[in-house]
Design a protein around this nucleic acid. Sequence first.
DNA 1: AATGAATGAGATTTCATTCAT
DNA 2: GATGAATGAAATCTCATTCAT
Lengths: 201, 201, 201, 201
Amino acid sequence: MCPKIIDKKVKKQDILEAAINVFAQQGIPNTKMIDIAVKAGIGKGTIYEYFRSKEELIKEAFRSYIVKLDKAAVHKMEEADHPIDKLCNIIDGWMGVIETSYEESKVMIDFWAQGLRLNRVIEEFNLKEIYHNYRTLLSGIIKQGISREKIHPVDPNLMASVIIATLDGIVLHWIIGKEFFDLKDAVELFKKSTIDPLRKI
Amino acid sequence: MCPKIIDKKVKKQDILEAAINVFAQQGIPNTKMIDIAVKAGIGKGTIYEYFRSKEELIKEAFRSYIVKLDKAAVHKMEEADHPIDKLCNIIDGWMGVIETSYEESKVMIDFWAQGLRLNRVIEEFNLKEIYHNYRTLLSGIIKQGISREKIHPVDPNLMASVIIATLDGIVLHWIIGKEFFDLKDAVELFKKSTIDPLRKI
Amino acid sequence: MCPKIIDKKVKKQDILEAAINVFAQQGIPNTKMIDIAVKAGIGKGTIYEYFRSKEELIKEAFRSYIVKLDKAAVHKMEEADHPIDKLCNIIDGWMGVIETSYEESKVMIDFWAQGLRLNRVIEEFNLKEIYHNYRTLLSGIIKQGISREKIHPVDPNLMASVIIATLDGIVLHWIIGKEFFDLKDAVELFKKSTIDPLRKI
Amino acid sequence: MCPKIIDKKVKKQDILEAAINVFAQQGIPNTKMIDIAVKAGIGKGTIYEYFRSKEELIKEAFRSYIVKLDKAAVHKMEEADHPIDKLCNIIDGWMGVIETSYEESKVMIDFWAQGLRLNRVIEEFNLKEIYHNYRTLLSGIIKQGISREKIHPVDPNLMASVIIATLDGIVLHWIIGKEFFDLKDAVELFKKSTIDPLRKI
DNA sequence: AATGAATGAGATTTCATTCAT
DNA sequence: GATGAATGAAATCTCATTCAT
């Protein structure tokens, strides 16, 4: 139909993936536009045909990465019935993505650092919003589980916050030193200690 | 006796504190030497009387911050007897520092991002080492607790890792959005779900 | 075929010539990168597309200048048969370059001063080596002349050293004050007193 | 009588000698005021009690060095009767100073480079003038020798110029690489080829 | 008189961005 | 549409000089 448009989209995605890759490897502030161009196998100027600026590129890279995580999580979630299983599936979805792409996952820390300073100004790169959506997703499941008597009463918002925090904490420390503990073991320990006990029936 | 030496140390610490402050506010990569100088109320050249380079300053700021956290944690730890109480006291020590300095705590995320890229080369700014020391501290307490039958058998290293990860995760998300949950509540929830059940007697 | 490569080479040479020019006029240590850029009619950032650093530029300027002198000398030398004539031709070749570019020749003094401190570390800017090559060239001609009985026996190395030294001395003082003596007259006096008497047949 | 004044003079000379030393070792442009202070064993600020600025210090160091050379030369000159011997004595005087202080002699090259750019503006550091004085000294001796029929007729000014040029050339190349020839041998070769033949009776 | 901590003008260098080809 | 040469704003860092002690 419109091959040009498809081409453009593909190439844009290629650049984004190259960018995420280099961001993860070198850190966002250390990454020069030329590095991304080289990684993507294109000319330096070409990036600007697809992104207005480095900041724009960072924001889109972030979005692209989040979307990827989302897909994995949401996909898994659907398969479960009991809210606890839903939670576990979401967790497994997220962690699955992280586990299969250690190097790439490093970019999360840069996104956190970047996002912290951009919150106020920019909507497209809003850590708060994104994590609040996750929180809402989880607390919704928990809330429903409580009202359906499948989960022991807890503060759904707090529990959701702790789940997200713990997972990101585990990711952070696994990235800092993957040789010190096994990602899956840590997640299982967390699930056993914090998620499973919530189960009522 | 040697007023000059004391003066120099004090001024160096002043600069470090100004730096940490600005780093936390603006992010390390966005922070210019002149910003630190202005914050410290000195000329930009003066910084170089105390630190060889920006990188050196960052590393020392990191160290200085870690030492601060350490002091708070170790101080609290001593007061307890039962290993579970020791763990809780360490946790409370860390979280106490974080809670009383929200703005400053933001710098942690920059340190994580920075540290990730510097690990290989530099020893003074070694996230891996620092966290491994924490891990060893906690797992030592746990191990001892198990052998003294005060703690249920668990993998001490994994448990230590999860504790550290969870705390940092909570800190991370509290920094991203402190309005969404209460730091203390989250920590208490974590202690209740994960630490307390370890207690044997 | 490859117009870009040729362009780059030409532009690099342009920058080098601008640099030598400004170095000669102002002295190397007084020359700022911006001065060279202005002289070359480009932006200061552009220099760094062609040279990694100021030091690199200095070294290449030095080399470029030496090559120029070499060409002139070697060219002339070939034309002679008797070793004394060869020596005289080399001398005339060198002095010809110097004489036709008084202003530019000033750069030699800066190169001497620079080269003195860089010898130890760097090979590309090795005064010792360059002058030793000249010495070898001249002493070779003298040695051959002696063995072929065309030149009276002298220490070839010492004679070569004195020739080079005298020429550079004359250049030095002509640069310091060209109004005090005529370059050619001085060179002729030197040839008559020192070179000519070497001739056997 | 006035110990303070004497003290001041001595200390000033100490600083000058330290400066010449460091200038020779590192090159004038690479020498920081602090280097000189350290070498002289005094505080950085103290230099400014004796010299208005770095430039002033350079100029006085130059003068101090020249005076030293002068003394040695003039002293020797007096001892001779025949103008050729006078010339030789002056030459020996100069070269004697050079030979006994290889490291320090390097500073000459820096003085040449510096002097070249300062000629126009400043009188205290006037290479042209200084060397013209030398030229006048030598050409005066030669002129007198010619009129007294002790020296073959030559252009006194040109001969004086060539003598000075050759000596400085030999010094230059001996400094660049003292291992390649013997200073005295070179000077003797020069005297034999150029000075001695001037002798009439 | 002597000092060295403080300073900021000024130098080098980097790199996101532009734009002619 | 793609490119990379050119650019200059802006950053880091140096160091001669000042001045309070």
